[in-house]
Design a protein around this nucleic acid. Sequence first.
DNA 1: GAGCTCTTCTTACC
DNA 2: ACTGGTAAGAAGAGCTC
Length: 822
Amino acid sequence: MVQINFIPLDYGYFDWQGHNYVRIIGRDDRGKRVCLIDNFEPYLWAVLKQGISDRRIKELQRKIDKIEIKLPSRITKVKKTEIHDKNFLGKSVKAFKIFITNYKDAHPVANKLDFKEIEARREYDMSLITKYIIDKKFIPLSWRKISGEILNNSSEFGGIDSAFDIDTCIKVEKIEKIENKKFKPKILAFDIESDELELGKGEILMISLVSDNFKKVLTCKKSLKKPTYVEYFKSEAEMLEAFIDYVNKISPDVLVGYFSDGFDIPYLKARAEKNKIKLSLGLDKSQPSFFRGRIPKAKITGIVHVDLFRFIETVYSQYLQSETLGLNDVAYELLGEGKKEFNHKHSSKIKEHEWENYFEYNLQDSILTYKLAEKFWPDMIEFSRIIQEPLFEITRSSMAHLLEDYILHQLNNYNEIAEKRPLHDEIKERRQRKRVEGAFVLEPKAGLYENLAIFDFTSMHTSIIVSFNISKATLLKKREKNSYESPEVEFAGKKTRFYFSKKPGFFPMMFKELIEKRKKVKREYKENPNPITKARSNAFKLLSAAVHGYIGFFGARYYSLESSASILAFVRKFNKETIDKTRNAGYNVIYGDTDSVAFQLKNKKRTETLKFLKKLNSELPGIMELELEDFYKRGIWVTKRAGGFGAKKKYALINERGKLKIRGFETVRRDWCNLVRNLQNDILQRILKDGNEKKAFQILQKTVDDLKKRRVSRDEILIRTQLKKPLSEYKARTPHVIAAEKMKKSGTPVDMGMLIEYFIAETRLKKSLVREKVKLPDEKGEYNIKYYLEHQILPAVENIFEVFGIKKEDILIKDQKKLTEF
DNA sequence: GAGCTCTTCTTACC
DNA sequence: ACTGGTAAGAAGAGCTC
């Protein structure tokens, strides 16, 4: 019997003599790599209908105990059946806990439970690892004291201890909770370069590896100078083998790449196959396995493969200003350094002296990936601990999936049996439903305003869910006395109201607790700001923000469109009420969107306004809360280009400290050229600072002049538009589709998700469509002055100057003559 | 071929 | 297919006159 302190990193399972065992790879507190083997007792639930007699229950139990699934490879039996008092969708129920010998057959066992006394069969559709973590409270990346027996060249479990490259293998007897201590994982970042983007098409030219005090580029190409970090190999095969050796030797906890699920790992696998090499990266020398999904997930046994791109995409992209989530943009924003310059061309055309630069470029990618991984480690570890799912899962799951995992791991606190995942037909039906009415947006009156404030609701949707006890399980079939009543909603073509029980449901309670946890962590962060508390606070924030969307998501276990419709009806009601109350208090309300109200203070003082906020808060139910977003010195709202009404979701503000808040304007949209984005930004800034348009107009005149004199660089007039689907699926012949087709024709690989760059050029055609003037950035040709004037500059500034009574004609009139010259 | 509406598409806001 | 609804706006398609 041994005892160690252990932190789990990678979870897997295997079968031995027809039973399931869980295999956990992690470290002990001396840094040794340990593999734990633990038994897993699979079970599922059968929820009984109300009022079944004890005698009948006994009878059923006997029948269930006899269930057997016979397969060629194994026989799965019911081991035992227990009767428990549980909750299911908030109701107290009696349920059978049916233990079976192999979880893989839980589904067929569930199918055999078709007794009329059984209302529902549940928890046979969850991941085995999820159930294991819940049952043993063995939370990923959390320290535990493990007692057990060391396996040493044991034949038990088929000799697993010798198959794995580990220091110790322990058969678990006991798991005890201990206080979390620090853990610094060994991270290894990698990146490959190849001629082709299509997986496995061309050979791999080089592979870079970066870890703590370790930098390498492995290559099978020759260069003139030989940097110390480069290792040369005779062939691609030898290079691949060296890569595998290095990964095995360094033996990292985390192998991290950037888009490595979608590119590097599958590419390596394909090239290894071509070279008849086994890509034995796993601790048991196994090859990466791929799990299906939008992008297949590449799993390496014993080492956590993290595709940092995927994690950043789901949990961090909303905070990033970067125009793309490519490594260069993200690294620039977060690390202040980007990729190295390298002019990509086919390897056959790269000269001997150029390879050195390519190596450096390749190395830099791994360096950036490594640094980003270090930066995001607190986020990864906190997400993993809070959601209680392994690192591999939480770095790849969508937000809805993360939230659902969080819910599943919390259910035990409420003695709840988990709801099932919707089946195919159910998903289809849900997706066909009419969408429910959303939030309210108040149409602003265009103008320049001074002395403003914005109030907004904190976590509005979630606080409504909590305050009105809204969920699938608390929804009442019909009106009941003493229940929460939603405002009137249009649902399935009828006007109706929904009612929710006042008995607190597990779902709203769970998120009440989550909001409380977040508040606590936020306080902790304020007292002691550090990356861990920041990451924890952020994880709670993101989960909380996703709850309403999750309820309306067709794939959710706890989907409830009635709940979603009710939440949104409350959102509209409270926003409108707040707008009315603000107006009635003597403020000039300018605008409001979903959970906010923007207004002019007029003659009122700030202290008075804060007092008014307090009053509003005292009138709000439950945990709902309105807060001051900020006071603003000035703000501008413009009209729509069509129709002359005030444009929603489009405004710019400046606060006392001179900080701008610009929403919706072209300057924040990446599909407008930089010339116009910068121009509009300058104009808005000038106007908000000065309170008038004089200088801003001069800025405009100068830019128009530059444009006409062709002093504007190519870079500034490039328009970037993303390909949102495969090129072949486009019905419309839009400029960016034409540009993408041109790229393809010229040999540049074009893929879904790419940001297509182009500009609009002068043509000899007298009358023509925009798409006929599309040119790629490196094509010869001059920019089309008329287009950039009338379709870029003017649309972006016209409505701003209109606020000051300056018309489109006033902007152009001075230049009318000049215009005709071109 | 001008002028209109409608569809397709992208990207924003909350 | 992998949170939701609301909205602006460009470009092109298709129609009428």
